[in-house]
Design a protein around this nucleic acid. Structure first.
Lengths: 213, 213
DNA sequence: TTCGGGCTTTCGGCCTGCCTAAATCTCGGC
DNA sequence: GCCGAGATTTAGGCAGGCCGAAAGCCCGAA
């Protein structure tokens, strides 16, 4: 089976789902994430399973096989390296890179990717704080906790901010909150910044931020 | 009509055909250039004509409308800026950039293109010597003559080398002939370089090289 | 234990872009 | 003026990805 942009998007989305929590993804969630109808997912799932990229029992959740994990890692690696490049060299802000990377991730050759990786000094994480898989799919895990799940009083620095919703990224950037920011959690939706100022976060935003443990 | 990669490729190829000679392109030539069957061209021609991008009378040649010219210019601009960027910043040689640009030209946003253009200092020509259209489709023409058509004794510098055939580009690069090289034509397929050394060129290569008049 | 709502799958269809094979047209040579 | 080679178009099909509607499955609540 050929690895089309659609295949890459499905693999990437399945991969992303289990990156920060253990539950495998279900077809309906995958459909919602991709913005396609559930029946489209059923169809593609057959193809991916037939190609040995995912495992799937009817009516059950979806899991990447080792081969699928490798393929997904490659797409995620391309996406995150592109994001890092856009911010470091092309004048993008970290909350503006997602859509561009979404397209370029399907268009870069291995050679160009390697050239970008070298230019950037083989970065380990992207502008949102997400880890960049190595070419073999390996990455260094860091213990993290969702801000929304952190106990009041918890202090930590922002490790990553999910890039799923661009509006959240914009709002946080406007609030001067980004990867590396030090925060103290007051309650689930309020935080104190180093200067002492207090920010009230939308529940969505609080669920998108991951802090050091 | 949406502007898909296929549409962009058709427009770009029609544009390229009349860039260095005046005859409009025929469906069969277009099919050969694109590597598709003639019937596929007929089909797409209907769509492009219906969208007002080309004019076409049945069994006749194809011509870009002003709208089609603008669309084609945009694709060509993206292609050539990408080639220039790959050579100047990403360590590619000028005979290696075509295939990568062929894909990236469909993937860059206007914003990223502008950033690249600015970084490169708004170059007027790409690594093969081809002119880069401005955003409005305009470009500065330079009088040129095909090496294969030049009279013996004609001396000039290489303005451009058609990037159609990668093998030709490789061979010429190995012979140290590239855009900017000074040449004296001995006969249609032999040239003298500044050092006095003489090169015999394949007819294909001689037809791919354009010299100053 | 049964039932119903929600999730998943099946089914039939649509669109793009490509193909081959079979018309059909054009035009130069005789 | 006719004819045939070559170019173009038509017709019928295929694969990838998507859709909505309808059928099927699963599991928790009663």
């Amino acid at each position: 089976m050929s690895t089309t942009p659609a295949v890459e998007d499905y693999l990437k989305t399945i991969y992303a789902h289990t990156e920060w929590q253990p539950e495998p993804i279900t077809p309906s969630v995958l459909a919602a994430r991709l913005g396609v109808a559930p029946s489209s997912v059923t169809e593609m799932v057959k193809k991916l399973a037939g190609a040995g990229l995912i495992t799937h029992v009817p009516y059950g959740p979806l899991r990447l096989t080792p081969a699928g994990f490798l393929g997904a890692s490659a797409v995620v690696r391309r996406h995150r390296l592109v994001e890092t490049w856009l911010v470091r060299e092309m004048g993008y802000d970290w909350d503006q890179v997602h859509d561009e990377a979404e397209i370029l991730e399907h268009a870069l050759s291995d050679r160009l990717l390697e050239a970008i990786d070298v230019r950037l000094g083989r970065p380990g994480s992207d502008p949102h704080g997400d880890l960049i898989p190595a070419a073999d799919g390996s990455l260094v895990r860091v213990p993290a906790i969702r801000l929304a799940d952190a106990a009041p009083g918890h202090a930590g620095t922002v490790l990553r901010i999910s890039d799923r919703d661009p509006a959240i990224l914009r709002d946080l950037a406007a609030d001067s909150i980004g990867p590396g920011s030090a925060l103290t959690v007051l309650e689930s939706c309020a935080v104190r910044l180093p200067g002492g100022s207090i920010r009230l976060l939308a529940p969505d935003a609080a669920a998108s931020i991951w802090l050091t443990k």
